[in-house]
Amino acid sequence: MNILEVEQLSIWDQHSGKALVHDSSFQLRKGSCLAIVGESGSGKSLTCRALTRLNPKSLAQSGKIVFKGIDLTTLSEAEIRQKRGKEIAMIMQNGMSAFDPSCVVGVHFRETLGQHLGWKRRVADDHMIKAMERVMLQKPVELLRKYPHELSGGMLQRMMIALAIVLEPDLIIADEPTTALDTISQYEVIQQFLLLRQTIGSSMIFVSHDLGVVRQIADEVLIMRSGEIVERGTTHHIFTNAQHEYTRYLMATRATLSDHFRQLMEGS
């Protein structure tokens, strides 16, 4: 059963009329993880934001986005707002800039939980603290009182995952969640994503240009290039039997990079 069906999604700039994403259709099975891979500017993030209509007003979109049987494009602003966060949660690329710099991070969690579940401060904090312990964050009570600049990108990313654990969304959209992290934090965050899928059984769209990460986490892969889907298939298929020239190019680049890395390591 598909939890999400995107049909002929197009996104274009209203001023210049330039097409940014062209006629892309894809499906997401319930409980599975779809990776969208492509270079910067290929329309990955635009596609993700278009799902909950988060792109700026200067960008227009057309096409159907059927989520759990409802076409999200027909909902009113208030109706789609109730879905954002609660049913479709987003994990941002850069934790350091994802929180209001003038508030302690706890404020965002309280506001979000208060908005969706009507929880008061105490209840919201209690749930957040439990979820933060599950994503292996030390001293959660103190963390909630910290400002974003006092925490690391990896910690903030795990806090966003913790919020998703509390809200139990049906779909999680992670927009390049590991790009801004160092290798060790990347590994930890990926572990948390795997755990997150196990715990709440949500479906996931994972945007990345890191093929190593994609191989670990995704069931299916979608390759995008300049606003169009050029290839799709199961992770195994894409990694072993890519058909499209561009996909093979991506694989080859990755191979060159890792070969070079291996040479360096062996050389030392």
Partner: peptide, 23 residues
């Protein structure tokens, strides 16, 4: 980004606006 994350979390426009104003 924090405005996008606020909206993506389903915060009301008025709440998001207060954060923008505050900054």
């Amino acid at each position: 980004d924090y405005v996008l994350y606020g909206r993506a979390s389903g915060l009301k426009e008025s709440v998001v606006m207060m954060h923008i104003l505050r900054n």
